[in-house]
Design a protein around this nucleic acid. Structure first.
Lengths: 366, 366
DNA sequence: CGGCTGCGTGAGAACGTTCTCTGCAATCGA
DNA sequence: TCGATTGCAGAGAACGTTCTCACGCAGCCG
């Protein structure tokens, strides 16, 4: 039985030609009977199907793709599939693909633009029918545009880009952040810190506005930057402290950087009375930092996080978070993609899914 | 710009023939120059490559697969990709695949055997080169064996089956469970509950042994059953209470069932002083149930869980868990798969990766 | 100078499917 | 009864790549 674990054994897989010979008909007829196209007399169809069953015939999808040009598979490209956000999105994309009779091919790009470019290239070579991508950069998208020019539809997940005419599925990051901040500010907090993950070379630029002396932010339209924008807008609206030292950036990949930044924030001479963590990695970082330093939540510092992951409800105290639904986002993105694949051709739309502020016990009045 | 979002535009993608014509050589030569096989004179190779660049030629992988028979992609089939365990495993599989120049196609089967069978069928039709699968059933594996017979190697993840000659990558579930239990029993606990997820129709059968009156378990070699076995073995070794009412089964999909079972366990007239949760879903269920009922961990009940997920270290108290590394398991499985794909042909091996008992604060002396 | 070797090129087949086109036979209307 | 029409089978091309084979040419040796 040693030779049975997967080495090709001699017997060739039967093809349409084999079935045709077995059934005593032409290849064309066998093909029609098996592939359900054209017209075949009933008795012949049956004879062919019996022959196919006898030989254990299974169609060769590669050959089919070769003729048809389509592969009935789509690509999903994301920064890190082990991140619960993307895992859930992937799940949504996958489900819709299967409903449509398609398969999903997965690419992990680890926040590296060159890897993303290569992923798109490989997907195009594989003659994929469409791509759902959460692009690393929203400015450098030549590779995505090339896909479109090749006739392969692209849908952006969690990002929008002005440089591309494509559907995108996002949440209103600025409004969500504003809502989270409003909650803290209504509770009376006036000194609120921010910890946000940013992409190194596309990081936001914090500026001091000349007229008011308050902070502003410049940079492309990205989730993190929009959230920062919402944070600053809320500070302005409520006339709260707008200070550089209260704003902390980390890179997205590691929790421990987030934890270090959060720690520095909490240890300021004049520390914030509340913190808004702009994504799930920093949320975990702030929570951990506070616990390690023995800073009590919410009595000493209030916390609003981002993303309703399991743990945020399990910890003590449960964390108030901005909840979004990555699985729905994945589903929606895939649905839009299939509309394009079916030939719908209209200008790219920006689809905004709702968020919800899940108020729990990590926030309290000042 | 409305026509630019993905609809096929007239221009056909250039093929080797186009490049050959442009370079003024034969198709064969162009193919050799582009595909890096055979021998081509240097000046011709250059001319071809320039022509290819000029036309924007990109190889058609489908046509290549058609000739070669291989697709340079592998399939990954798992119950639920949104489950952190499988997401991490997927990550490992994906990484290795990319290192080897392969892609991974993902299938979610939602704990349904018919869906799994169909997934395997589709993967075979797609001429996939190999499959990593965490099969739902360890007895009904005809579909997996058929894949092997077709020459497609299969590696089992997190499961072993006596009915199949395939590599499998697992942990020693019985030993891991025994170790977790030994920890509790050494702390003096003698009345220890168990909550485990099982697959409905393949569930373990709990039996009372005639000689000793103590519990035994019958059933296929599955993670959950092996863990139950380890639990019972430890009870016997330490002469602890072996009682039916202390053993609770739930189905794998929902946390709330686990929570209900855990609740029933904690509310027994004579409740356990410690609980072993045999997987990550039940761990969360037990933790939540205890909190909702106000049962203090570890003072009123000690808890050992399974799987070192983020939240287990973040909650209060941090949970003692059996830690495994699904990402390594995914990597290892993929590595074995590629050895088979490269032609290695030897009897299937059972590869056991280590586990570690991560002792935290949810366990205390009786 | 003829045969041998080795290199590099081109023609053409092959992979397995689907689709187009031709042709045959039966049916129908005039 | 004849021509037009229809239904259906079969031959063969096409998809784009890779591989096999044959051939031409140069260099070498006997």
């Amino acid at each position: 039985m040693a030779g049975d674990t997967g080495a090709r054994n001699g017997r060739r897989r039967p093809t349409v030609a084999d079935v045709a010979r077995e059934a005593g008909v032409s290849v064309a007829t066998a093909g029609r009977a098996l592939g359900n196209y054209g017209r075949v007399r009933d008795d012949l169809r049956e004879r062919v199907q019996e022959a196919a069953a006898r030989l254990g015939y299974e169609p060769n999808v590669v050959a089919r793709s070769m003729r048809s040009g389509g592969t009935r598979s789509i690509g999903f490209v994301a920064a890190d599939i082990a991140n619960p956000y993307f895992a859930a999105a992937m799940r949504g994309v996958c489900d819709v693909a299967h409903e449509e009779g398609y398969e999903a091919i997965l690419f992990n790009v680890d926040d590296r633009l060159d890897v993303e470019r290569n992923a798109i290239k490989v997907l195009l070579e594989k003659q994929i029918d469409g791509i759902v991508v959460s692009p690393i950069s929203v400015t450098d998208m030549g590779h995505l545009r090339r896909a479109q020019e090749r006739g392969v539809p692209v849908v952006l997940l969690d990002r929008t880009s002005a440089r591309m005419n494509a559907d995108s599925v996002v949440i209103d990051n600025e409004a969500a952040a504003y809502g989270a901040m409003a909650h803290l500010l209504e509770l009376g907090h006036r000194r609120v810190g921010l910890v946000a993950s940013v992409v190194p070379h596309e990081g936001p630029e914090l500026v001091v506005r000349e007229d008011t002396g308050r902070l502003g932010v410049r940079g492309a339209v990205r989730p993190s930057i929009d959230r920062i924008r919402g944070y600053l807008a809320a500070l302005d609206a409520y006339d709260a402290v707008s200070a550089r030292e209260l704003v902390r950036f980390t890179s997205l990949d590691a929790v421990r950087y987030a934890e270090a930044e959060a720690d520095a924030l909490l240890m300021l001479a004049e520390p914030p009375t509340a913190v808004f963590a702009a994504d799930n990695v920093t949320t975990q970082g702030v929570f951990t930092a506070a616990r390690k330093r023995g800073v009590k939540i919410p009595t000493e510092v209030s916390l609003v996080g981002f993303d309703d992951l399991d743990w945020t409800a399990l910890v003590d105290p449960p964390v108030t978070v901005v909840a979004q639904s990555p699985m729905d986002m994945g589903r929606t993105a895939a649905e839009r993609l299939f509309r394009r694949i079916r030939g719908e051709d209209r200008p790219g739309a920006r689809i905004v899914l709702p968020t919800r502020l899940e108020v729990r016990s990590s926030t309290a009045p000042l």
